[in-house]
Design a protein around this nucleic acid. Structure first.
Lengths: 135, 135
DNA sequence: AATACCACTTGCAAATATAAAGTGGTTTGT
DNA sequence: ACAAACCACTTTATATTTGCAAGTGGTATT
């Protein structure tokens, strides 16, 4: 049910594991194509992926464009609204890093980017994401 | 499917709307009892509430205790692991506040607490939550 | 002693999410 | 030029989750 809580607004949109994993892939792993998302370690299904991409596009968190060279290929990228989710993802990552086992390969990409210099790290990452968004 | 990504660890646990709404109720609205959670605006069902409380307890994000005066009454509170989710919730709230309509009554409680002085606000709120946790 | 309250649990229908296979077009390789 | 492979999805069928109503075994209130 919808409510007037601002937290609930966000949770209605991305309070779902798969949605946030797609945003993670765009944000930290530089993925852009449908089949790149499909290949993620968590094993998202085509149905769920299509559903979430369409939801994210309707919410204007991501943008869909056709690749200039390959007509059948579609390029996804984060909008400003999507890029603004970086602090949310970073803080989920920092929390997980504190409470999960440290032995994993993705750790350096997500946590290393944030931990040492949290705010300036976010600014730098935002700039890079904007570049991709605007190119 | 489980993966080695630190983000995924967190999402496996609380990457679910209802779970985060319960944490919100504990964190910002001072709720402590089963029927207080049931009464939230979003209308959680008893089945889902019982399921999520048990999950959160198994993950040691919340703690269950019996009320001293009323034996049948059970008091829920956030553990340190739960309190450490504050930056996640705050940032979801800040994002929602930026992109949702501003006309809602919960806004001041969540956003007002964070926006003006973000870091020291978090520290103060953590202290209050620890007091509840330790009492 | 009866009634109300408490934190759940159970049973079941309905809604939702998911996997597996298929579709129609595009590009690649020969 | 033609077949095979690739692309981003749909469709179909099954599995899971959810909401609802009612019930449970206690405890507190009147």
């Amino acid at each position: 049910m919808r409510s007037d809580c601002p937290l609930n607004y966000g949770l209605e949109i991305f309070g779902d594991k798969w949605t946030l994993l797609i945003i993670r892939d765009l944000m930290f792993f530089g993925k852009r194509y449908y089949n790149e998302f499909l290949a993620s370690d968590e094993g998202i299904s085509t149905t769920v992926l299509a559903d979430r991409l369409s939801l994210l596009e309707r919410q204007k968190i991501i943008r869909k464009r056709k690749d200039k060279e390959h007509k059948q290929r579609i390029v996804y990228s984060l909008t400003e609204k999507g890029i603004d989710l970086l602090p949310v993802l970073i803080n989920i990552g920092l929390w997980s890093d504190k409470y999960a086992s440290r032995l994993n390969p993705h750790r350096d990409i997500i946590i290393g980017a944030a931990k040492k210099d949290y705010m300036s790290g976010i600014e730098e990452m935002k700039r890079r994401l904007y570049d991709i968004h605007l190119q």
